[in-house]
C-alpha cells in the first residue's frame, strides 16, 4: 500500500492547516474574552467606580472600591503566609530532598497543586470560619494559602535544582555552612526562576473564587479588620453576574476588567522581566 506522492503531500498540507486551525480555535476565545471584558467593563471605569462602595440600586451606582481593596489585602496576606512557607518547603525538597520523607512531601505537594479549590473552601469554612465564629479576611487568606503553598514549594524546588552543583561546592569549599550557602548563594542564583514562579502563583490565587464564597462572605464596606467579612473582586464578579439588575451585572464586567488587568499585569510583567534570563 503505497500512497502516491501527491496525495501524501496533500495530507501533509492538510495536517499543517489543521494544526494551525487548532491554534486559531484556541486563541479566538481568549480574544473574545479580552474584547468583551474591555468593551463591557471599560465604560464602567471611573474614579467613583474604583474608589467607592456599592451604591443603592436605582439611586446611585457606587463602585467596587471595597472589592479592589479586599483583593489586594487577600493577595498580601496570602503572600505573607504562603510565600515564606512555600519557599522553605521548596528549599528542603531541593537541598535536603534525597530521602523518603522528602519524596513523600514532594508527592503530597504535587497532589495539592491540583486540588479542586472548592474543597479548600469547605476546609477553610469548617476550620477557620466556624472556629472563629465569623466569615473573615483571615479565613480567605488561609484558604488561598492552601493553594499557594504547594505551588510555590514546587516552583522553588524546580528553580533550585537548576542551580549547578558546582556553585554549592564552591561556597562550601570556602567554608560557608550549608544554611548560609543555601540562603546566600543558591537562592540568589535561582532568583529569577523563583520570582517568576512565585508571582505567577500569586496571579493565580488573585483570581480564585470558589474558596472565597465560603470564607470572606463579601462586604459593602472597606476593610473592617482581619476578623471581619471582606469583599474581593472575584466574589463581586460572581455575585453581580447572578443579580437580576443590569446595572449590577455591568459592574460585574467592570470588576472583571480590573481583575484581569491585575492578573495579566502580573503575568506579562513577570514574563517580560524574566525573558532571556532564565531557561524556559
Amino acid at each position: 500500500m503505497i500512497n502516491n506522492y501527491a496525495f501524501r503531500k496533500f495530507k501533509n498540507r492538510l495536517f499543517f492547516v489543521l494544526c494551525l486551525a487548532c491554534v486559531v480555535i484556541a486563541i479566538v476565545p481568549l480574544l473574545s474574552i479580552l474584547y468583551e471584558v474591555i468593551a463591557r467593563g471599560a465604560p464602567q471605569l471611573s474614579w467613583e467606580f474604583l474608589t467607592q462602595g456599592p451604591g443603592t440600586i436605582g439611586v446611585s451606582a457606587g463602585g467596587i472600591g471595597p472589592a479592589i481593596q479586599g483583593s489586594l489585602i487577600l493577595i498580601g496576606l496570602t503572600s505573607l503566609i504562603g510565600i515564606p512557607v512555600g519557599i522553605l518547603s521548596g528549599v528542603y525538597l531541593a537541598e535536603f530532598g534525597n530521602n523518603r520523607y522528602a519524596s513523600a512531601m514532594r508527592t503530597v505537594n504535587d497532589v495539592l497543586t491540583e486540588f479542586p479549590s472548592i474543597i479548600v473552601g469547605i476546609t477553610a469554612f469548617s476550620v477557620v470560619v466556624l472556629t472563629m465564629g465569623s466569615f473573615s479576611a483571615i479565613a480567605g487568606a488561609v484558604a488561598l494559602s492552601f493553594i499557594l503553598i504547594p505551588v510555590v514549594a514546587r516552583t522553588t524546588e524546580e528553580s533550585l535544582k537548576l542551580v549547578p552543583n558546582s556553585v554549592r561546592e564552591a561556597s562550601l569549599a570556602l567554608g560557608a555552612h550549608k544554611w548560609r550557602t543555601t540562603l546566600s548563594v543558591v537562592l540568589p542564583a535561582a532568583k529569577s526562576g523563583l520570582v517568576t514562579g512565585t508571582l505567577l502563583a500569586v496571579a493565580r490565587i488573585a483570581g480564585e473564587t470558589a474558596p472565597l464564597i465560603m470564607t470572606v462572605l463579601g462586604n459593602t464596606y472597606f476593610f473592617q479588620g482581619f476578623g471581619q467579612p471582606m469583599d474581593a473582586l472575584p466574589l463581586r464578579i460572581w455575585r453581580n453576574a447572578l443579580q437580576p439588575y443590569p446595572e449590577l451585572q455591568a459592574q460585574g464586567w467592570g470588576a472583571a476588567l480590573v481583575l484581569i488587568l491585575i492578573v495579566l499585569a502580573l503575568n506579562i510583567g513577570v514574563r517580560l522581566a524574566s525573558r532571556g534570563r532564565f531557561r524556559k
Binding site: 486563541i27 481568549l30 474574552i33 483570581g207 480564585e208 473564587t209 470558589a210 460572581w238 453576574a241 460585574g252
Partner: peptide, 25 residues
C-alpha cells in the same frame, strides 16, 4: 508569541470564563 497566548488562557480567572460563558459564549 503563540505559546505565550496559549498560556494566557490559563491566566484568565475561572470566574471570568464563567462571566463570558454566561453572557457571551
Amino acid at each position: 508569541p503563540i505559546a505565550y497566548l496559549v498560556e494566557l488562557l490559563a491566566a484568565v480567572p475561572s470566574v471570568i470564563y464563567g462571566l463570558w460563558g454566561l453572557f457571551v459564549f
